[in-house]
Amino acid sequence: MRTLKTSEAAAILNVSPNTLRAWERRFGYPRPMRSPGKHRLYTHGEVVALRDALNDGLSISSAISRAREAVRADTHVLLGALTAFDLGRADQAMEAALALRPLERAVEEVMLPSLDEIALRNGVDSAPWAWSAAWAAEWVQRARRLTPPPSRAACVLVGDATAGPHDRRALAIRALELFTARAGARVVTLPVGCLAGLGPVLDAHRPDAVVIAGAGSPDDELARWAYAVRASVGALPVLLFHRGVRPGRSASARTLDERASAAVSQIVAAIEPPSGLPEPGMGERSQSVAARPRRMSA
């Protein structure tokens, strides 16, 4: 995916950088990413779509509406491919989506809405949903395999509490795992129903935070798993993702944003060393993280 600095995007649109930033504040478009140095990076496809609309003589508000529709068209293309059960077209639709936006936005703005629409039309107990969900899970797995090695010392343990691969929340959880790995953390996912041999796995990975993801497992099963995790590695920060509101839930467990990209930012904040302290080397358990007061409960 090609990105542009503010000055480059402004030049393509034939406006000043200040005007471009004013459009961003007023209309939320074009919406930039941020570089590691916190500089704006605009997606080339979004800028070009806006330029073409402006060249047709539209006002800025109308041009932005047209550019957004052009970008949103990718969702319709993917939905059509999945409805036709065409793997090749589905892959091509995601490649086109990636040409216009970062991977995280391609998943959240194109893939997940398309899968939601199929679930609404057919139900999650239908063959079209099963087929589409399997394609999406495989696509996310391929993206995960292409993710660079972890750049952070921290490890995130994901307790999969879904009702299985056809659970409607499962794909959002796979997206969370992918985005967390792309943020540089190690990710280990274990079903909350699996207790046998849990200790050696946790001893090998030494997680720094636990994300309980999904609402398909009963509370008693989750409580047993949480107790086993705590017995193996001690008290950890507990974060809930797509768990839903449950009576009697411990106040020590923090609920994450339902958008995977926003949830990852919250996870990184929970595992990041305090500002000003060096991050420990790969494979070392962070003393700064381990020293924090932490509680783990279901």
Rank of each mutant, 00 (worst) to 15 (best):
R25P: 00
P32W: 08
G184F: 06
F241K: 00
L171P: 01
T147P: 02
A215P: 02
A231M: 09
L87M: 06
I267A: 04
A235D: 13
P218M: 01
R259M: 05
P247F: 12
Q141D: 08
A106K: 01
P247V: 02
G281Q: 12
L115W: 10
R230L: 11
A70W: 12
M296F: 14
A11T: 06
S62I: 00
A70V: 14
T189W: 04
L240Q: 08
A63T: 10
A106R: 00
T147S: 15
A181F: 07
T75P: 00
V48Y: 10
T75K: 11
A97Y: 01
A143C: 13
R292L: 06
A231Q: 12
V77I: 14
W139P: 05
A9L: 11
I64P: 11
V187Y: 03
A270L: 04
A130I: 06
L198P: 10
A143D: 14
R89P: 09
S250Q: 06
V47P: 12
G57A: 09
D56E: 15
V238I: 08
R21Y: 09
T43V: 13
G45V: 00
V77D: 15
F85C: 10
G214C: 08
V233A: 05
G28M: 07
V15A: 07
R101F: 04
V187F: 02
D160I: 02
S261R: 15
P148H: 07
R174F: 05
N14M: 11
N14V: 04
V110S: 01
L98R: 14
P191H: 07
A81W: 08
L239M: 07
R145S: 13
G244S: 04
L171V: 07
M111N: 02
A228M: 06
P273F: 11
I173H: 00
L98P: 03
G234V: 03
H166Q: 15
Y42H: 02
S297P: 02
L87I: 12
P36W: 00
C155P: 03
L202D: 07
L50H: 08
V268N: 09
G193A: 05
G234C: 04
L198S: 03
V110C: 07
T162L: 09
G37H: 10
A170V: 02
N122W: 15
T162E: 05
R174E: 11
M94S: 07
T19Y: 10
T147E: 09
I267Y: 00
A106Y: 05
